[in-house]
Amino acid sequence: MTDILQLKNVCVRFRIKSAMGALFDRTSPASFDAVRDASITLEEGQTLALVGESGAGKSTLALAITGLERIAEGSIQFEGREISQMQANEIREYRRGIGYMWQNAIGSLSPRMTVRSLITEPARIHRVPNVNTRELSSKLLDLVGLSEEFGDRYPHQLSGGQARRVGVARALALNPRLIVADEPTAGLDVSVQGEILNLLNQLQDELKISMLVITHNLNVVRHTSDKIAIMYLGRIVEQGDTAEIFSRPRHPYTLALLSASPSPDPDMQADRIELKGEIPSPINRPSGCEFHTRCPFVKETCSESPPPFEAVSESQALSCYFPR
């Protein structure tokens, strides 16, 4: 199998503009890494799920992959080509080949445009010649299971699920090789969620699209992804085959994450590993292993120096001194 996407030690850095920060604390830095040292690989035709805490840097990493956010360090290769070294026209072409589904489905849709013009907008943005808007929009609406009538609606006239389908349609507009979907099923009921995921799976099988899916829903991850990468505070802390990680999570954060998912049976007592302590901020990273402040299995060495990110089997890698 070939890798379609390869990230090595990627860092994305944001400046802190706030003067208050400096006022309260003179030692606070002028910038921080929202993504730090992230390395992931996506094989052609596969689905990689990116999960992790809110604020962990998932969306930022996705934006970096789509070329919408600059990386400060590291490398991103698409089909073996470094994207930071591409010419302007190559970048355009590269970005055309990626279908991006924004995290906030309704908010990212311009309120003054009809669904028809929204889903065909990528063709205009990328100046694709000779597009029959009617035909394209009909095809796309059909692909995502919306009736023709929806073409004339405006975003505020859609339910959350309908807006999400519009997002899928938009991402598909230019026959992408790679779909980056940020929370594609957040806000959907379980049946429509199933439909969207089945739709993405089906499109993947038919069109051989590779996918990077960001999601909080571990049940979604379990059923739809081949590989999984778990992020904490901008770093990838564990990565591997989905089935393997679900059957044997090794990093304590992964363990906590997998045990947290609430069960639909009110009588099922969850056997949880609860995380205590404050969520650290990327502006002020803890010493040593950055998870040590909340780790239920913390030992003295953990706060001293950061554990390396190492393979523990052929397909599983993690950064922890004391894996489970």
Binding site: V190, S191, V192, G194, E195, N198, N201, R222, H223, S263
Partner: peptide, 24 residues
């Protein structure tokens, strides 16, 4: 009943095709 059946949390074996409620 269907809604509860569709919840992937209740589906133990891995599947690529999730249950849905047919129709619109």
């Amino acid at each position: 009943q269907k809604l509860l059946e569709c919840d992937p949390a209740g589906i133990q074996t891995k599947t690529r095709i999730l249950p849905v409620i047919p129709g619109e």
